[in-house]
Structures are given as structure tokens and as C-alpha cells.
């Protein structure tokens, strides 16, 4: 039984007079696979923006690896080992795929020849080795998703947040990305997966959390959460009705 690597306590985020999130409490154990579901606008992205440092929460604390990081800027959290991918891929255009990976690596300290080897290793592991020197803007949707993940991985993070890393992909491509995340998890990285694709997130997660209007309405094993009555009402009910 290990100590949690991320401890979120009573975190709230307000926009104008509206509470977009919270209060929520979430723990994440090292090496855990946590699924985060909920309808659009339920606060999933707000929560991980608070975790990655894009937003500063209005209330509550976030502790990472025993350190209070509630007010740390995003770039410092990234260097501490919290990596993320974005819902809409944000490639660094005007650079090659390799250069995209060099951006985070510039801030890791070592400027050795091994840096390039490391980048090549990661590119090979996500299946982008052949596109190493291609301009980022020439990538396909799947390749962009992979680039997002590769860029997060080169920093050897302890926690990876994958924000809808499979949106817009075909069934085969989803399997591809899932396998990639599983392999990554095998190396000890804790992963928070935000996903709308139910079968993927249920297959992947050890534990799931469902958010609705900024609050946690269910937490537990994927089966428990999926069968939770409230979850079915807000999530599946909404889908069935839509």
C-alpha cells in the first residue's frame, strides 16, 4: 500500500459567479490508472487544468509527491513530473516532430548526445519514428495525438493526464493508443484518462470517477461507476436522450 502521489482536497474553481468545479477530493496512487468521465461541461478539463497548473484553484489544495503545488506555475509542475496532453492537439507548428520533443527536453538539464537517443526512443515507442523530421503541421489526426503523448513522455513523467487522447480516432487507432498507454503504465507512470469513449475508458481504468456540474457523483471500479444510478441518469441518460 503506497502513499498517493497526488492529493487533491476541497478544490474549487469559479468563473465569474459560476462554480465550474468543486469542492472535489481526489487521490491518485503511483502507477494507478484512473478514468475521469462526465458529460460536457461537468468540470473534467477544469479539474485537470487545476492539476496541471493552467488554472489556480480558488479554494483547496493540491499536493504532489508530498509537496503543496497549489500555486506552482504550470511549467514547474511539468518539470516535477506532471505531464499532460490536450483535448485538441496543440503541436508546435513550424518545427519538425523531433524538435517538438526537444522543447520539453531543453528544460531537463542534460544537453548530451543521449538526448537525441531518448527522443528517438520515445518516437519509436509511439510509432512516429518514420515521421521524425516531418514538419508538425503535416501530421494526420492520429499522428498528432501520438505527438501529444510523445511530447508528454520524453520528460519521463510520474503522472500523465490524457485529455481525450482518442477523440476522433477510428476503432483500430483507439486500440493503438490504448496499448501505448498500457505499455507506459507498465513502466510505473500513473495515468488519468479523460474520455468520452466509454468502452475504452472502462477497459483501461482500474478506478473511475464521474463528475457532474463540478462535483464527484460516483467513484469506484469501472463496473460500479457504470452501474451507478446517478451516473446512468446524467451520463447515459443524457446520451440516450441526445
Amino acid at each position: 500500500m503506497s502513499e498517493p502521489i497526488v492529493v487533491i482536497r476541497g478544490v474549487e474553481k469559479w468563473f465569474g459567479g459560476l462554480r465550474a468545479l468543486g469542492p472535489v477530493d481526489v487521490d491518485l496512487k503511483p502507477g494507478e490508472r484512473l478514468g475521469l468521465i462526465g458529460p460536457n461541461g461537468s468540470g473534467k478539463t477544469t479539474l485537470i487544468n487545476c492539476l496541471s497548473g493552467l488554472f489556480v484553484p480558488d479554494k483547496g489544495t493540491i499536493v504532489y509527491d508530498g509537496r503543496d503545488i497549489t500555486r506552482e506555475p504550470a511549467f514547474r509542475r511539468a518539470r516535477m513530473g506532471i505531464a499532460r496532453s490536450f483535448q485538441i492537439p496543440r503541436p508546435f507548428t513550424g518545427m519538425t516532430v523531433l524538435e517538438n520533443l526537444l522543447v520539453p527536453m531543453d528544460y531537463l538539464g542534460s544537453h548530451e548526445r543521449s538526448e537525441l537517443e531518448r527522443a528517438d526512443e520515445v518516437l519509436a515507442s509511439v510509432g512516429l519514428a518514420a515521421r521524425r523530421d516531418a514538419p508538425a503541421e503535416s501530421l494526420s489526426q492520429l499522428e498528432l495525438r501520438k505527438l501529444e503523448l510523445a511530447r508528454a513522455l520524453v520528460t519521463e513523467p510520474k503522472v500523465l493526464v490524457a485529455d481525450e487522447a482518442m477523440a476522433g480516432l477510428s476503432e483500430n487507432e483507439i486500440d493503438d493508443v490504448l496499448a501505448l498507454l498500457m505499455r507506459l503504465n507498465d513502466t510505473g507512470v500513473a495515468i488519468i484518462m479523460i474520455e468520452h469513449i466509454m468502452h475504452a475508458v472502462m477497459r483501461f481504468s482500474q478506478r473511475m470517477i464521474c463528475l457532474e456540474t463540478g462535483r464527484i457523483i460516483a467513484m469506484g471500479t469501472p463496473q460500479d461507476v457504470a452501474q451507478d444510478r446517478q451516473v446512468q441518469k446524467v451520463y447515459f441518460g443524457e446520451r440516450a436522450g441526445a
Binding site: L54, P73, F75, A78, F86, F92, P104
Partner: peptide, 17 residues
Amino acid sequence: RAIKASEPAAEACGVPT
């Protein structure tokens, strides 16, 4: 150049934008 392409992504990569 990373900042020009996307500031949030640059931050998430550890760039002190």
C-alpha cells in the same frame, strides 16, 4: 516558437513562458 504555436502547450512542456 513553442510559445508562438501554443502557450498552454509550451507551459505544459516546462517552458517558463
